[in-house]
Each structure stands twice: as C-alpha cells, then as structure tokens.
Amino acid sequence: MGDQIIKTEKVTKIYKRGRSEIVRALDKVSLEINAGEILMIIGPSGSGKTTILNCLSGLDTVTEGKILFNTSRAGEGFKIIENKKNKEESSRKKSSNFIDITTWNEKQLTAYRRHNIGFVFQAWELIPTLKAVENVESSLYTSRIPSSEIREKSIKLLRKVGLIDKEYAYPDQLSGGEQQRVAICRALSKEPRIVFADEPTGNLDSDSGNQIMRQMKIISREGAAVVIATHNMELRKFADRIIKIHDGQISF
C-alpha cells in the first residue's frame, strides 16, 4: 500500500538484565503504520509497548529485524544523510522507497525524528521555563522559518485545541489536560508524518482523556499517522486499528 509510512519486518528487541537474564521485549514484531490512521497498541504493563515506540522512532536500537521508512512520505525538508552502510542498501533496492532506519547512525536518526516524528508523552514533558506558546514553538526553533511565522502558527494550533487566552501561561499554571493539549500542539507544529503517543491519557481523568483522544482524531484526519500505546481498553473506541501486544508478541 502506498499509504504506508512505516513497516517493520520481524523486529526483535532483547534487553540484558544483569549478567545472564535476557528479556525479549519485542519478539518478531511485524506491523505497518498508515497515513491518516489512529493505530492503537494495547497491552498490559511490561508487554513492550514503549519499546516498540522507542524502536520505531529511532530512540533505541533493535536487536534484529528491519524498520522500513517510506521516504516518499517523508516530511518537508527531510533529506537522507547517507552513510556507507545504507548507501549499499539503497543502491540495492533502488526500486523501493523504503529505507531501513536500523542502519542509520545517530545523526541520521536525529534528522529522521526532526522532520517526521512528533511525540506526546504520558507526563507531558513540557519545558517548565517556557510559556505554552513557546513550548509549541520549541520544535521549530531549529528550523529556518521566521520567528513571527512560527508564533502565528503556534497560536493557531493552540486555538484549535481550545486553548484560548492561555498561550502565555507557564505549564505549571495549566491543568493536566491543558498541558497535554499544549504537548499535542508541540508535536504537531512541525507537521510530522507520525505522532507517537505513549499513554497520552495516563495522567488524566477520563473526561480530559477523552478530550485528548478527540484531538488525536482530528490530527489523524489531517494526514498524520497517530500511534498510541496504552493499557487502557476504554480508549479502543477512538482507534481506527488495534494491535494487541503481549510479552513482546503482537496479535491483531
């Protein structure tokens, strides 16, 4: 399908704990992520949800398997920085737009995240010394977009998620739900291809949780894929597609 942004082939992640103990956090996981969908990864605690997100976003390395990124769907400004390893690979697979990010080095992965990936975390992780609007802007400070344009864009986003008159509040002056909405705007401001959200409603009551999920829905309608990891079965109703995970193995 041309709509695939990422597909994985038998991704295995093994953690070593102590001297001898081995944890198979992901076991031959193959999945795909399509543009414009809300993909929900549901599983109990310790099942490997966070590990998947870490691997897909290039924050962590995989032990085995491939994570293929569709470069024809890459975000604006993204350029593949080539290194020896994936140069061979890309010449081998000229026909395909998919490149294996597991061969990338840190610099390449940084560029990958910068132009393609947005994050929403359980604990929001807003920068406490930045006002709401500055938090949203922070993911664009490194871009070449003029500051005034960034400001305009960020305020527009905040309005869209219902944060009117709170643009200049500091995170600690906002409720949890409001902070999470700021975090969503921050993830969106750079127009990512995929938003990864790990328990985005985990610290919220169900009302504000539902509100957050509705925002997520709106985002996905605009073309970005939203991947949500959660153990909360109640959120199922917001998903377009669900992947269950248990002990590192997935089932549909």
Partner: peptide, 15 residues
C-alpha cells in the same frame, strides 16, 4: 528531561 525532550524532537547535539 528537557534535554531528553529536545533530543526526541530532533535537536542536533550542537543545538
């Protein structure tokens, strides 16, 4: 945590 956020966002080390 702030540094971690920036790295997740795709800030380069120099930045």
């Amino acid at each position: 945590r702030e540094i971690a956020v920036l790295r997740a966002m795709g800030y380069e080390k120099g930045e």
